[in-house]
Design a protein around this nucleic acid. Sequence first.
DNA 1: CATCGTATGTGCGATACCGCACATATTAAG
DNA 2: CTTAATATGTGCGGTATCGCACATACGATG
Lengths: 301, 301
Amino acid sequence: MSGFSEKTSFAKAPETVAKTGISVMIKAVPQGSFFIFDIRHLELSIKHLLMPSAVNHDATVLRRIFQMSIPNNRLLSALDSGSFRKLHSKLETVPLEFGKDIYQPGEISTFVYFPESGIISLLSSVETDSTLEVGIVGNEGMVGIGVFLGVEKANNHALVQGEGTAFRMRSADLQAAVENDNQLRRVINLYVHSLITQISQTAACNRYHDIESRLARWLLMTQDRMRSDEFRITQEFLSNMLGVRREAVSKAAAGLQSNRLISYSRGNLSILNRKDLEKTACRCYRVIKKDYDDFLKESAF
Amino acid sequence: MSGFSEKTSFAKAPETVAKTGISVMIKAVPQGSFFIFDIRHLELSIKHLLMPSAVNHDATVLRRIFQMSIPNNRLLSALDSGSFRKLHSKLETVPLEFGKDIYQPGEISTFVYFPESGIISLLSSVETDSTLEVGIVGNEGMVGIGVFLGVEKANNHALVQGEGTAFRMRSADLQAAVENDNQLRRVINLYVHSLITQISQTAACNRYHDIESRLARWLLMTQDRMRSDEFRITQEFLSNMLGVRREAVSKAAAGLQSNRLISYSRGNLSILNRKDLEKTACRCYRVIKKDYDDFLKESAF
DNA sequence: CATCGTATGTGCGATACCGCACATATTAAG
DNA sequence: CTTAATATGTGCGGTATCGCACATACGATG
């Protein structure tokens, strides 16, 4: 596959990269060695691959090639090299800055976004003041399914909740791409389904479960997507996500803290005991995660 | 609606049926006259058309032509005649019986359904006992978007909430049709978007608004789809829809009744004052309805 | 250092909703 | 008619959450 034809002085560089099933094989001829890794663990694998003991050539070049050929977004990485190459020229990388509005309700969606890292929250609201998070998007998904579905205007609010980067693409380019590329359509269709499930389950969860459980669920979902045990987050922000008073967040967080599940001080939140946090969270977390995992399984082929 | 004059008689059945915009033109050649009516009032119009005083030929033939050419489901009727004819052989009409499960979560979806009348509720649940309605489907939509999106198993519970009839179609047939028919795909895509909006807005509504407002909203949405002022519905059932105790439904209904907005006795519910009921309902009703109307506008072309 | 804005902790009364218990009305079945 | 099953109305104490008020802590900025 792809751009390994680079004349980059790869005396010791991989000569061929072939995608087989869900894994990617890299063959580094001079050493006669090769590496296989699961694209689901791309980051991990790259680190491994770049360990000096294994490879002794220019790490940055290799990394760049990797990033070009296998984007760290599940939707894009599920595409075969042909599909992705066609998209590639339309994509640009942009930073996701905390608190930035990606979409405002009613606004024309100029771009769609495929996060590589960071998190974007999808919010619904009643009477402008009271907001509620209905969905979370990380590198497993995209923001802009409205565009994919043929609607110009965003219907809900999309907000950067955790810093990172994303590919973005003009809406028109996406629509054109979708029109011609069955594979792309199929992958995004599956994602849309997964998102609907997430929204539905979250709705029931918000109705039935108490704040502390929901906070636990939210933290777990965030951690899954941030792949970090620590993040900065204000109570005010959390209150908008969970749809409760800020004071209630304060109380719920104190509850989790007293059980040593998290430590939370002035916006610096870190998860201390993931296992027990899962117990505190309602089953909804598992339900959503299962669907999410199934979706990843189905979309990787 | 419109130019249906009583005096005009159909010596013969309409010779051509042409769709223009959102209206349908029927040309009855012998008289050189034609009729235009809004497909939104199709049922009404057909009844009117088939009044003995107006028509003196074989009513069943005419009715069949109508049903073949303009199904009373917005998704199907948005298709041009070519698209629809291709689907037609795959469709069969089935009754929607009250209380029947269309989908159970986790179950393989054998069929998809395009209601012509009646209502199907989409339910989400936590721990089997506590359910919550996340979406309502009437003749504006379909049940089985999971199939459309490429997923075999249903993710949520779909339940007949109001009797009626629906077209149904094998899932495989839908998938094949979607693959080849851009127009069909486009229409259902728009519907999926509309449904996502509905689910999201409902989620926020359930979080923020009190039971009486939500009950009012629910009744309005149901009335829109049943096109009837009266329906049978138990408190137990309503409690599952709104995700509250049955007793709470009793209280909320009593509230509406004391203001003479509805009359409700032992399952027989009738809406007395729609206007004021809309005032009691939260703004969510309007928001959802607006999106729903916009969707209908966009999908009719 | 002083100041100010922002984030956080806490307490208290009000309220919406829950859970349960029980009475009553209606329909269905024997 | 009797009985059972189902649907509905009502009351009461408990609890989660709200709304508001206020005290406190921290960070940025001058």
